[in-house]
Design a protein around this nucleic acid. Sequence first.
DNA 1: TATGAATGAGAGTTCATTCAT
DNA 2: TATGAATGAACTCTCATTCAT
Lengths: 216, 216, 216, 216
Amino acid sequence: MDPRTKRKQREYEARRQEILSAAECLFSKNGFFKTSMAEIAQGAQFAMGTVYRFFKSKEEIYISIVEAKVEELAELLDEEIALVKTPSDKIQAFIRVKLDYADRHRDFFRIYVSEWSGYEWTIKSAFGERVWKLYMAQVDLVADLIKEGIRRKEFRKIDPKDAALALHGMLNSTMYVWILQAKPSESLIDKRNLISTLFLNGIQKESKPSYIRRVV
Amino acid sequence: MDPRTKRKQREYEARRQEILSAAECLFSKNGFFKTSMAEIAQGAQFAMGTVYRFFKSKEEIYISIVEAKVEELAELLDEEIALVKTPSDKIQAFIRVKLDYADRHRDFFRIYVSEWSGYEWTIKSAFGERVWKLYMAQVDLVADLIKEGIRRKEFRKIDPKDAALALHGMLNSTMYVWILQAKPSESLIDKRNLISTLFLNGIQKESKPSYIRRVV
Amino acid sequence: MDPRTKRKQREYEARRQEILSAAECLFSKNGFFKTSMAEIAQGAQFAMGTVYRFFKSKEEIYISIVEAKVEELAELLDEEIALVKTPSDKIQAFIRVKLDYADRHRDFFRIYVSEWSGYEWTIKSAFGERVWKLYMAQVDLVADLIKEGIRRKEFRKIDPKDAALALHGMLNSTMYVWILQAKPSESLIDKRNLISTLFLNGIQKESKPSYIRRVV
Amino acid sequence: MDPRTKRKQREYEARRQEILSAAECLFSKNGFFKTSMAEIAQGAQFAMGTVYRFFKSKEEIYISIVEAKVEELAELLDEEIALVKTPSDKIQAFIRVKLDYADRHRDFFRIYVSEWSGYEWTIKSAFGERVWKLYMAQVDLVADLIKEGIRRKEFRKIDPKDAALALHGMLNSTMYVWILQAKPSESLIDKRNLISTLFLNGIQKESKPSYIRRVV
DNA sequence: TATGAATGAGAGTTCATTCAT
DNA sequence: TATGAATGAACTCTCATTCAT
């Protein structure tokens, strides 16, 4: 490819990222509705018209932020889950990676949790649908792990989707309250053992000795 | 009391309710920001000025809806929990009552879940604080039940608040997805056994035979 | 006349006065536009509908206040001016009575000055015209005194109307600044000698020894 | 400076002036409260949002009009007063310049007089304070001239501030009535001699032959 | 291509006035 | 006659989006 074109593409991407960064910070602080395009443009050091060259609406910026991060998270989850064998271990990895990611992207997770259960009703668009699908893909990922666990007789016969949803909720509410605390007394990652234990004990066969590997 | 005054009070309350009803429906459908006072007034069949005789701002309407319902739910929870003895049974009652209430107040729970995890950042006011406290009171209620269970050696030694939060999340995400389905294939109350089993197995002592009473 | 009818009339007048009193106080404090009918009604201890039985609009209340007081002042001026003989003395009496009246009706004079030169452009009605005529009648009263003084060769040949207007302005600005002071260091009546001296010296024949009687 | 930037500044200033002009006309005709932002925008041939790019509130427009003109007048007064020597001449210059300015800025003086004595009670803000100070600076300017006249034994021993206030009032009421006349039979400047004579005779030492220079 | 001034519909809120009780 | 709840037009101000430069 023409190196000139390449450089242009790189620059384009860089500008796009700057806008997303500025917007992420503002959305996280003030919410979607109380953040204005003027603020986003100023935060990204661009004129408003320029912002509109990259995103056709405020809504699209919002969706793009969520999409990018959720995709990144999805990849991370896939990678880490692939490293271990048993469904139990995979679920533990899932929990660990997700909490860790939230720990490191606090700003974004403010938006994430909010989107997951708050804005969905106010942002109805093709994009909203796409984000929703990404979310549900995460739930389905866990559901599949549970299904495999049931097949292996490690887990009890429960509805995999419902159980996956429950795990999602446990993680979300935990993250939510952690985010609200101005100075979290403890790292979010410390909640990992509680959630792992709680969830795995909850779905494992009663007979099976509940052994949760403690990760240091 | 003067019967005339009484009737007036009744009428006042009736009108107030009509406004709250209309607003609840609209907030539930479109969210707080995309619902206008003009829509609320029209929905309640009143002039805008009339709405302002009952509520001094849009925010107050919102808060009133949440507060009233959350308080009602809190009372229901208290009552039902008092009817059974053991922490396990009380937690099961908690889950049942909450899912049942959501089943019967679908519109409101759209707002409830939204508020619980999305709204806090955009509306911070004395009212917002009050609602937040009501939410946390529910979490604390469960935390106390868990504490008691731990004291009785029925539950494992876990952080009661964190566990309570996890249960809250499980319920919320379950309700959330159920609400999003236009025509729920099954009643929300059917999820009760899954969540009860999952959560109680999760927190109970491993030695103890996990016995979840099936409620018919 | 039927004594019953009489009592009714007395009561009617009493109610009317209560409304005017409350309104005067409020207009004086907050101005015409920032005073609401609800406040006036509440201040007079009546329902809003009742206020409208006595005055057909907020504007009419405003005008009525001004009219009543200006008429009272006009009568006082006539009486006091009649007690002395020379144009000089009459003018001094005019100044004294007006300042004294302002001293005693501070609230009203806030409105008076305001009306005299502020609100006229915002309140255009038949009533506004009437108040304007009352004001100008006061100017004409002084103009006539000056005319008489000129005829008697006590005053110089100047335009009586213009001179009268000038006196009006001197009084107004003096009263205005006095009213604005939260705690006037001195009584408004103390300004009398300055204004009398200034104005009479200004219009008297140069040859004539300027003798201003000092009133104790 | 970059010529492009310069042109932009010029255009910005031009637009700002257009808004101020339209507002001045409307405020003068209908008063502050009965003039709506929609009318101002329409009068200036702009969209409402555009008006708000230049002024952050209706109040700020109002204040800006008054401030700009009062400052211009203040400069004119300073200049003209500096051209003559004696306090008497300076006071005459003051009167002449002010009447002349009113003659040429009729619309504004409607607002000026109104503000001077009617507005203070309804708009109390940092801006209002500023305008009030500008007004009082004019009074103080005259007060200083009178003080100097007293020191030179040209004027009688009177309170300089009170006398200055009286002059202000004479000018205001004269201007006010002139403004109210739809088609003034005579130019406002013709009142100059009356006011000068009246005021200077009023404050000059009796012994001193009253010599008022007639300006052609 | 980048700009940011201009747009104008629409927001929440107020309040003089009316009228059923 | 007295009430005060109801009205709804009008208010000030915001901001996502467009487009001439």
